[in-house]
């Protein structure tokens, strides 16, 4: 549905996006994740035909963004970083205007308008002047504007920024319900958002794609060992050393609590069975044994910071170097 090939964008001498290539299949939800200035907005603007790429090609719904921008624009709902709102119009007038501008037949405008007002929760303010709305409501109007012509492709730049927690949940479930029938790209800094609603995550850093995969696979990729957290009732003085002697265990780290430790073992091994038997046989009293998985946040930090830290430095996990990042760094 969306194909981006070797796209670069230069602002003068500054390169905002550098040789980016990716595909999004129909029905997928892709999250752009990256620190400020990573190039998320720039990539989205290129896809929305707001600005042409300096290099490379972008196709949306089978049409080239440079050659057939009109066809692309007809099939695209775009929420820019700053919601494009005319302060002096009311929400109703504004949505009617956008609907007609996007080319829906005039007779369908009222029903579409009613539907998006319902979807994004604009009911209480639909007759008010946009300039008088609070930030969260303006963001919703921006979202409604992107949805009004029911486009098959949605590009949402930070869709939930400025919303209250309740509304964030509603918008996320709205995006989730749209996935499948719609192809969606969204950008976010909020990592749980990416895990919650996206089928794929793309981490961008300094204009390059650092990693791209499903949220689960991404965290397992970065993981170099399985980690378990173990809590017991009555630890003996040398219980950590004793645990370390078990076969398959690489390391045992103490934690802040004296009765809890973190156990590191080889990737792909499940030692929970052995461990629990050992703990019981030693009479420690097993309270809790849970596998620790890396959150997307860790992945994000790891992938975006590893460039700055040399291999093997204490902050960057050593040895195993997963992900596409290396191939890119090498080239």
């Amino acid at each position: 549905m969306i194909t981006v090939q070797h796209v670069s964008k230069h602002y003068g001498r500054h390169t905002a996006v550098h040789d980016v290539t990716f595909h999004v299949r129909k029905g997928d939800v892709l999250a752009f994740l990256g620190p400020n200035g990573a190039g998320k907005t720039t990539t989205m603007r290129i896809l929305a035909c707001f600005m042409p790429p300096s290099d490379g090609t972008a196709h949306v719904a089978g049409f080239d963004c440079l050659e057939q921008p009109m066809e692309v624009k007809r099939r695209l709902g775009y929420l820019p970083e700053t919601p494009p709102l005319y302060q002096e119009l009311t929400v109703n007038e504004y949505l009617t205007f956008v609907g007609r501008l996007k080319g829906i037949t005039p007779s369908r405008v009222p029903s579409r308008k009613a539907q998006v007002i319902e979807q994004v929760g604009l009911g209480p303010v639909h007759h008010r002047v946009i300039g008088h709305l609070s930030k969260g409501y303006r963001q919703r109007v921006g979202l409604a504007q992107a949805l009004i012509h029911d486009p098959p492709v949605l590009i949402l730049d930070e869709p939930t920024v400025g919303l209250d927690p309740n509304q964030i949940r509603e918008i996320r479930s709205l995006i989730k319900s749209l996935s499948g029938s719609h192809t969606i790209i969204l950008s976010t800094h909020v990592l749980p958002e990416a895990t919650a609603i996206c089928t794929r995550v793309m981490i961008i850093h300094q204009g390059r794609i650092v990693a791209e995969d499903s949220p689960e696979r991404l965290s397992s990729r970065v993981r170099q060992s399985e980690k378990l957290s173990l809590t017991v009732k009555q630890p003996s003085a040398d219980w950590l050393d004793r645990l370390g002697t078990l076969p398959g265990i690489l390391n045992v780290f103490p934690t802040a609590q004296p009765d809890t430790c973190t156990i590191e073992c080889q990737l792909g091994q499940d030692l929970r069975d052995d461990l629990s038997r050992f703990v019981v046989s030693q009479g420690y009293g097993l309270l809790e044994l849970t596998p620790l998985s890396l959150s997307l946040e860790d992945v994000f930090l790891y992938l975006t910071q590893r460039e700055e830290f040399s291999e093997g430095s204490p902050t960057a996990p050593a040895q195993v170097t997963p992900s596409r990042a290396d191939e890119r760094a090498a080239t």
């Binding site: 603007r45 009109m70 700053t82 494009p84 996007k102």
Partner: peptide, 14 residues
């Protein structure tokens, strides 16, 4: 200034 031009330029209007 108000970034509404982004809406016009990404709509099917020349």
């Amino acid at each position: 200034k108000l970034r509404t031009f982004e809406l016009l330029l990404t709509s099917p209007i020349g």
